[in-house]
Design a protein around this nucleic acid. Structure first.
Lengths: 150, 150
DNA sequence: TCCATTCGGTTTCAAAATGAAACCATTGAA
DNA sequence: TTCAATGGTTTCATTTTGAAACCGAATGGA
C-alpha cells in the first residue's frame, strides 16, 4: 500500500472520504482516471483528451502512480499509463459522480454522454443499501468514529 | 436549475463526470457537504469541523448555494446552511468515495470511521449493475457520446 | 546517413487560488 | 451598556496552476 502511513498529513486522518479527496479530489485526477478507464493511455493521448497543461499532467500522473492508482512501464521508455486494481476500483465512484451530474448538472435537452452496458442499456442508478436491502440516506445512517479515539 | 446553461464554461461540457467535478471537485466542497449530511450547520460549526480558512469557507458556501447544493436562510440573519435535495443526493457519491478510501487509502489497523445503518451494521458496498442485475465494470460498459455531436 | 518529427517530459515565468491574520458590523446576553 | 460571539470581508504572503519555451531520446522518411 503506497503512502498511507504516518508521514503524510491528511485533511482528516480517520475519514475515508477525506483521504479519497486528498488523493484524487482535485480538478484533474478523476478525469485522468476516467479517461484511463478506456484502456492504457499515453501521455499525449491523455493531454489531448483533457486539454490539461503538460506540467500539470506530468505532476498528476506522478502522484497517481505514487499512490497506486496508475502503473506505468518500468522506466525510461515510451510510457503507457494503465489503471491498477485500485484505479479500476474507482469506477464505482466515478459512476456515482456521473449519475449525480446527469441528475443535477444539466439543463433539459442539453446534450450529454451516456454510460451504457454491453447491450446498450443505461446503467442502473447506484443507491446505498443496508444489509437487509433497505435503501439508505444520510438520515438513516451515521458515522461511527474510529474506535480508538472515542 | 442553477447555472448549468451556456455562459458557464465546463471542462468537458458533455461529460456528467466533468460537470460534477467542476461543481464539487475541489479540496473542500465535498467535505462541506459531508459535514452538512449530519444536519443544518452554521458557519462556525463547519469551520471548526473542517479546519478551513474563513474566506475559503465563505467562498465555497457561496458557490454551493449558487449551484443549488446548499440553501441558507433568506438574507442578512444568522445563517444556517442546509443541504438541498440535490445536495442530499450527493450522499451516494460520498459513500462511493468513502468506500474506495476504506479499501485503498488505509494501512492495516489504522483507525478510521465507519458508516453504519440504523441498526449499527455496515453499509453494503456499492456496485454498478446492468438492468439485468449483472455487475458492471469499466470493461463491460461504454460511454456513448452526446447523440447530437457524433 | 542525415534530417525532421514526435514523444515525454522539465523549466520558466505570470496569473490565479489558497490560507493566515486582521478587521468589522450585527446580534444577543449580562 | 458593555461585552463576547457570530458571520463574515479585506489584505497580503505563499502555493498552485497554466502557457510557452526548451530539451533529449526515439522514430521514421529521403
Amino acid at each position: 500500500m503506497p503512502d498511507t502511513g504516518p508521514g503524510r498529513d491528511w485533511t482528516d486522518p480517520a475519514c475515508p472520504v477525506a483521504r479519497t479527496v486528498d488523493l484524487v479530489g482535485d480538478r484533474w485526477s478523476l478525469l485522468i482516471v476516467r479517461d484511463a478507464m478506456d484502456g492504457p493511455a499515453s501521455f499525449t493521448e491523455l493531454r489531448q483528451g483533457l486539454g490539461i497543461a503538460r506540467n500539470i499532467l506530468s505532476d498528476r500522473l506522478r502522484r497517481l502512480v505514487e499512490h497506486g492508482v496508475l502503473s506505468t512501464s518500468p522506466s525510461g521508455k515510451r510510457h503507457v499509463y494503465e489503471l491498477t486494481a485500485a484505479g479500476k476500483d474507482l469506477f464505482t465512484a466515478i459512476v456515482a459522480l456521473r449519475q449525480w451530474g446527469e441528475r443535477h448538472a444539466f439543463a433539459d435537452g442539453e446534450p450529454r454522454s451516456h454510460l451504457l452496458d454491453a447491450e446498450g442499456r443505461p446503467v442502473v442508478e447506484l443507491r446505498p443499501h443496508g444489509q437487509d436491502g433497505t435503501p439508505l440516506t444520510a438520515d438513516t445512517t451515521r458515522v461511527q468514529k474510529s474506535g480508538r479515539d472515542r
